[in-house]
Nucleic acid binder design. Structure first.
Lengths: 377, 377
DNA sequence: CTGAAAGCGCTTACAG
DNA sequence: CTGAAAGCGCTTACAG
C-alpha cells in the first residue's frame, strides 16, 4: 500500500543490490515520511500481517522471522503508528487528567497539592505503560471531558473542583455518557468506587486531638464548611466531633469561609478578628489557607504559636518552610496518585475496586507549640 | 459503513417514525458504541463527506445543511474520532512534554521549578488548542522520544537533563531523526533556535552586583560549574566576571559541586566549611541548593544573613517561605512556558523563530541582609 | 506458522 | 454546494 510509486522504486533497487540498498531504502524513508509495516514486510520478504504480528511479539510467529523483522524495523527506526493502531484497536493506552482550579487572582500559580498529585499520577501512568494527557479546566461551559468520546483517552482522572454543587452536575453528565472516570476527593452519588479520598473526618479528628492534648481550650476553623466543599466540610465535622467529646460546643467554634488560597486564609482571619474572636487555636482546611492565617495573625501583632496555634491540611512542600514550620495533616499524594491510576485502569478493564480511602497522618512541626516534632528526613 | 446491521435496523425506524426515532437512534448509539459521521449522514439525509465538511465548518457547505448536521451531532453527542482524523491528516494536535529529573533519593518530589514550568506549559498548550502529553524520563536507555515517530505528538518539549554530556547525545539523535523539538536551558549545537533559556550569565552578574553593593568582599559558589551543567556554569561565570571587575580573582572564590537538590546544597556547604573556607556571601546555582546551604550554615552555628549571605536562583514558591526569605534571581516561568510552546509550534509550522532568551530578575528578600526588599504582592 | 482481505472512522482530491 | 471513492497504517478474524 504505502509508497506504491516511490517506495516501489526503492524496492526494485533492494532486490538487485541487497543489503547495502536496505540502508538506502532506510535513508529514503528517513527523508520523506516514516517507514510503514509494508516497507518492512517488503524488505523481509513476508506479508504485512506477519510484520504486524512479529512486532507485537505474537507467539504465532517463527522466531527467525521475528528476528529478521525486528532487525529491519530497528534499522528503519520504525515505530508503530499509534493513530492507526488505536483506530483499529479502539483504545488509546492513554489516560487524561483534568485539573480544575479554584479561581485565583494570579492564575499562574497552581495549587501545590495538586502539583504533587500530578507528579505521582504521571509516575503511576508511566509505570503502567500508559500515556497521560493533561488539561486545565476553567470550569466554564467547555468541559474537555470529551477526551474519551473523541478516543484520545481510555479514561479520565478528575482533580479539583471549584464549587462542588456546580461540579456535581458535570459528574452526572459523565455518568450518563458512561465515561470511565475517577475523581479525587468528591464523592459521586451512588458510586463510591469512582472516588479516591482521604479520610478527611479522621484528619479533622487528629487535628482537634493534637490541639486538645497541647492544652488549648478555645478554637476556630477557617475554610468553607458546607456542601460546596465536601472535603473541607468533613475535616470541619471531624474537628467539631472531637471538640464536642471534650465539652466544646460547635457554636463556640467560630468558622469563616475560605477557598484554598493564602489570600482567602488571610481575609478570613481578618474577619475572624474583626468579629471579636480571639481563639487560641485555629484549624484550617488546607496548608495554603494556613499560611494565609499565619500571616494574618502575625500582621495583627500576634505570634504563632505563642498566641495562636495553627494546624494546616495537606502537607505541601511549603509547609516545612514557613515560619514557624507548619503542623499539618498529611495526605499521601504518592499513594493517592497511584490509586487513582490503578482504580481507573480497573474500571476500564471492568475489574472490581477494593480500596478507595487513604489514611491521613499528623505531621507535628512548630506552629502549635509542641516540643515533639515529627522527624522527616 | 458503520452498523450495517444494527444501525441499519434503526435507520428503518427513523424513516417511518421521524423525529422521535432520532432520539431512539441516539440512545441506541449511546448504549453500544459511539455514533459516527455515517450515522449523522444517514439521519441528515446527506453524504458522509458533507457531514465531515460541515463539522469542520467548511465554507463549502450550505448553512442550512450545516445547521441540521450540527443539531444531530449534538443530539447524538457525537465527537470526531481523533485517531481516525489524525491518521488521515497525519498530525495529532498534541505536544509531548518530556521531563528529565536529577536523580534524587526520594524521587517522589519533583523539582518545583519544573513544576511551575509544567503549569505554564500546560496553560500555553490549552490556550492554543493543543493537548499535552506528559512523561517523566529516567534518562536511562529508553527515551520515549518516539512520541513523534509514533505519531502521538507533533513535537516535543524537553525539560531538564541529568548530566548534560550524556544528554547531548540524545539531542543529536533527535536532530538526526528530524524530530521537532525545543528544549529548556541546554543549547543544541548549531541550533540556537531550538532552545529557550534565561540569560544565565546576566543572572550571575546580578547576584554578584547585589552582594558587592551590600559590601561583601569574600565569596563562594555552590553548584556544578562545568559543561555537565551548562546553565549553572553560565551563572557561575557571570558571577565571577563581575567579581573580577571588582578585583576579586576567580581562584579566591571557592566553588563546590552540587546538583539541584537541598541535600546536595547541604553537603557541598559542609565540604566548603571542612576545607576551611568562611565566605561572607554564597551564590548558589538554584533555590533548592540555596535552601540546603542555609540549613548547613545554620547547622554550623552561623546565622543567615548576619554571618553568611545567600543568594539563590529560580524563585520557586518556597523561596519566599524559608527562614530567612531567600533573595534570588527569578526566572519567569510563565513567559518561559509560553515561549517553549509558541516556538515549538512555529518550528512545526516551519516558521522562523525570533525570541529565545528570557531576562532574569533580581528578587531581594532577607537572606543577604538588604533592607530594600522587592515588593511582591 | 503465514497470507489475503476486511475494516477501524475519518479527510480530501476529484468530478459533477 | 454535494457525493462517490480512495486511502491514512494498522489489527485481526478467516483460511490454509
Amino acid at each position: 500500500m504505502s509508497g506504491l510509486t516511490a517506495h516501489g522504486f526503492f524496492r526494485a533497487i533492494v532486490q538487485t543490490r541487497g543489503n547495502l540498498a536496505l540502508q538506502a531504502y532506510g535513508e529514503f524513508c528517513g527523508m520523506k515520511g516514516k517507514a510503514t509495516s509494508f516497507d518492512i514486510a517488503y524488505l523481509a520478504g513476508v506479508s504485512q500481517s506477519t510484520v504486524s504480528r512479529a512486532l507485537r511479539d505474537s507467539p504465532a510467529v517463527n522466531q527467525e522471522t521475528k528476528d529478521k523483522i525486528f532487525a529491519i524495523a530497528k534499522q528503519l527506526n520504525y515505530k508503530v503508528d499509534k493513530n492507526a493502531s488505536n483506530l483499529r484497536k479502539q483504545c488509546s493506552g492513554t489516560l487524561a487528567l483534568l485539573l480544575f482550579e479554584d479561581p485565583t487572582v494570579d492564575d499562574s500559580q497552581i495549587n501545590p497539592f495538586f502539583l504533587s498529585m500530578l507528579g505521582s499520577i504521571t509516575r503511576a501512568c508511566t509505570k503502567r505503560g500508559h500515556d497521560l494527557l493533561i488539561s486545565f479546566q476553567q470550569l466554564s461551559n467547555d468541559w474537555h471531558a470529551d477526551y474519551e468520546d473523541s478516543k484520545k483517552a481510555d479514561g479520565i482522572i478528575l482533580l479539583g473542583y471549584g464549587d462542588y454543587i456546580d461540579y456535581e452536575e458535570k459528574l452526572q453528565q459523565l455518568l450518563a455518557q458512561q465515561t470511565h472516570f475517577v475523581c479525587w476527593g468528591a464523592q459521586v452519588e451512588g458510586h463510591p468506587e469512582f472516588t479516591i479520598r482521604s479520610n478527611n473526618r479522621e484528619g479533622g479528628r487528629q487535628a482537634a486531638t493534637h490541639l486538645l492534648e497541647l492544652g488549648y481550650r478555645s478554637f476556630a476553623f477557617i475554610g468553607i464548611a458546607s456542601d460546596h466543599a465536601p472535603e473541607f466540610f468533613e475535616r470541619y465535622q471531624g474537628y467539631l466531633e472531637v471538640l464536642a467529646e471534650h465539652g466544646i460546643r460547635p457554636q463556640d467554634v467560630p468558622q469563616f469561609d475560605a477557598i484554598s488560597t493564602e489570600q482567602a486564609g488571610y481575609s478570613a482571619t481578618q474577619q475572624l478578628f474583626a468579629a471579636g474572636h480571639r481563639p487560641r487555636a485555629i484549624f484550617t482546611a488546607s496548608d495554603l489557607i494556613a499560611i494565609g492565617v499565619i500571616r494574618a495573625v502575625q500582621a495583627a501583632g500576634l505570634r504563632v504559636p505563642e498566641d495562636v496555634a495553627v494546624v494546616g491540611f495537606d502537607d505541601i512542600p511549603m509547609a516545612s518552610f514557613c515560619t514557624p514550620p507548619l503542623t499539618t495533616i498529611q495526605q499521601n499524594t504518592t499513594l493517592a496518585g497511584e490509586m487513582l491510576v490503578v482504580n481507573l485502569l480497573k474500571l476500564i478493564a471492568q475489574e472490581s475496586i477494593s480500596q478507595t480511602e487513604i489514611e491521613p497522618k499528623m505531621i507535628v512541626r512548630r506552629s502549635c507549640g509542641s516540643t515533639q516534632v515529627t522527624s522527616t528526613s
